[in-house]
């Protein structure tokens, strides 16, 4: 069973193929780690499946639906939500207003578990301490990341893409966000984590996918993938393998 599946997809920026004839499947109900060196195509993958950049070839499927070339809001309606690496929320809006937007607009047919069913519930579930009427301008980076996860969850997704949701957080905050991701997963949502820190992938994910130069380099359990000589070479260069 797969929730998200891309086959033969290519995204080119001028002469550079950021995604190059990529075929991969994200297993249903798992936490999958998407890793790769800088410029390997992780973020482009995220932008492609979430509808921001249409692939020039190939298909993107979400469950039974072919969502190739769909707009972001249509992908959200189909059940795919994403967070952004740099959360640029409108400063003049409050926490409650930001979470309220997908609650009003996302046309996903899925329902969230009771502990996430309202704006206040979601904020509490994601560990947002400030009150709902706090302006986003006054939030810390850690709260902005939690808000970003809460906003994405309010889209009621079946698949959630987390684009470096833990980057720039303290060790303590990272541990809390890891715990949060586990709870989201326990609520029945398939998760794709884009992450640079291998330790997080190793502790959090059941499945790992490695991209390099826009192609699939390796996939499998994190233990297997992180030991793969090809992966070590892609990260560290030739001669650093075991």
């Amino acid at each position: 069973m797969t929730d998200l599946c891309v086959s033969g997809c290519t995204v080119a920026f001028g002469g550079l193929k950021a995604i190059n004839d990529l075929t991969l499947t994200i297993p249903s109900g798992a936490i999958t780690g998407l890793i790769g060196p800088n410029g390997s195509g992780k973020s482009t993958f995220c932008n492609m499946v979430s509808g921001q950049i249409p692939p020039s070839g190939g298909r993107v499927r979400l469950g039974e639906k072919d969502i190739t070339g769909w707009r972001s809001d249509q992908a959200v309606a189909a059940g795919l939500a994403r967070t952004y690496q740099v959360p640029r929320v409108p400063k003049e809006l409050t926490i409650g207003e930001v979470i309220g937007v997908p609650f009003r607009y996302a046309r996903s047919s899925r329902e969230l578990p009771r502990q996430m069913s309202t704006t206040a519930d979601l904020a509490r579930f994601c560990g947002l301490a400030p009150a709902l009427d706090t302006a986003c301008a006054d939030l810390s980076i850690s709260d902005l990341r939690r808000l970003e996860i809460a906003r994405a969850l309010a889209c009621k997704p079946r698949v959630l893409l987390l684009d470096e949701a833990m980057a720039g957080l303290s060790l303590e905050d990272t541990a809390q966000v890891i715990e949060l991701v586990r709870e989201v997963h326990a609520a029945g949502i398939t998760i794709v984590v884009i992450e640079h820190v291998m330790r997080i992938i190793a502790t959090l994910c059941q499945h790992a996918v490695v991209l390099n130069n826009g192609r699939l380099l390796s996939q499998g359990t994190p233990e297997v993938v992180l030991r793969d000589p090809a992966v070590r070479e892609a990260y560290l260069g030739k001669g650093f393998g075991p």
Binding site: Q52, V76, Y84, V89, G100, V101, A106
Partner: peptide, 25 residues
């Protein structure tokens, strides 16, 4: 009102975020 203001402001400051929140921009 709450129905439009947050979505409008989100479109203004970050249309990609609005679209990823389900708003048909």
């Amino acid at each position: 009102s709450d129905r439009f203001r947050p979505a409008f402001f989100m479109i203004r400051s970050n249309p990609a975020l609005a679209a990823s929140s389900g708003v048909p921009v």
